[in-house]
Amino acid sequence: MLTFALAVVLLVITPGPGVLSTAGFGAAYGFKLSLRYVIGLFLGTNLVMFAVVSGLAAVVLSLPWLRTFLVCASVGYLLYLATKIGFAGTKVAFIEASAPPGLLGGLFLQIINPKAYAVNTSLITGFGFAPDNLIYEVSVKFLIHAAIWIPIHLVWLWAGVILHRLELPPRTQRVINLAMAVAMVGVVGLALWSTFGENA
Rank of each mutant, 00 (worst) to 15 (best):
F108C: 12
K32A: 07
V9Y: 08
V75I: 13
V182A: 13
N199M: 11
D132R: 07
W149I: 09
F108D: 06
F87G: 00
R171F: 09
I162T: 04
L157D: 02
G106V: 15
V182L: 14
V188N: 06
A27T: 03
P169C: 05
K115Y: 15
T83G: 13
E96Q: 15
R165A: 00
F50S: 09
A88W: 15
I95F: 14
V182F: 15
G18L: 01
A5F: 08
L154K: 00
L104E: 04
G126K: 11
M184E: 03
K91H: 15
G24D: 08
Y77N: 09
P100L: 10
V53N: 06
W158I: 01
I152P: 05
H145Q: 09
A118D: 03
V138D: 06
S122Q: 10
R165F: 05
V9F: 14
H145Y: 12
T90N: 02
L2C: 05
T3C: 10
V175K: 11
Y37S: 00
E198C: 07
F87V: 02
V155G: 02
A99W: 05
I148G: 06
L20A: 09
L6P: 09
T121R: 07
A23V: 08
V53L: 12
L2P: 04
L10M: 13
V71M: 09
T45H: 05
L70C: 02
Y29E: 01
K84F: 03
L143E: 03
H145R: 01
V92I: 12
K91L: 15
A97Y: 14
M184C: 12
L20G: 05
S139H: 00
I150D: 00
T14P: 01
G86S: 12
G128R: 06
L168C: 03
F127G: 12
V119L: 11
F94Y: 15
G189C: 14
F196Q: 13
I162V: 08
R165I: 00
P101H: 11
A27I: 09
G44K: 01
S74Q: 04
M49Y: 02
I112Q: 07
L134W: 04
N120P: 13
I152L: 14
P15C: 11
V175Y: 11
I135D: 12
L61Y: 01
G189L: 13
K115C: 01
F4Y: 15
A99L: 08
V71I: 14
E137T: 10
P169M: 05
L47N: 00
M184P: 01
L81P: 05
G102E: 12
R165N: 13
A191W: 03
S139Q: 02
A5S: 14
I111E: 01
I39N: 01
I144S: 01
V140I: 13
G44V: 04
A7V: 12
V138S: 07
A5W: 03
T3D: 15
L123K: 04
F42S: 01
A58R: 13
A146C: 04
G189M: 13
V161F: 06
G16E: 05
G40L: 13
V175P: 11
K91V: 14
A93E: 09
V155Y: 00
V19W: 00
V161T: 06
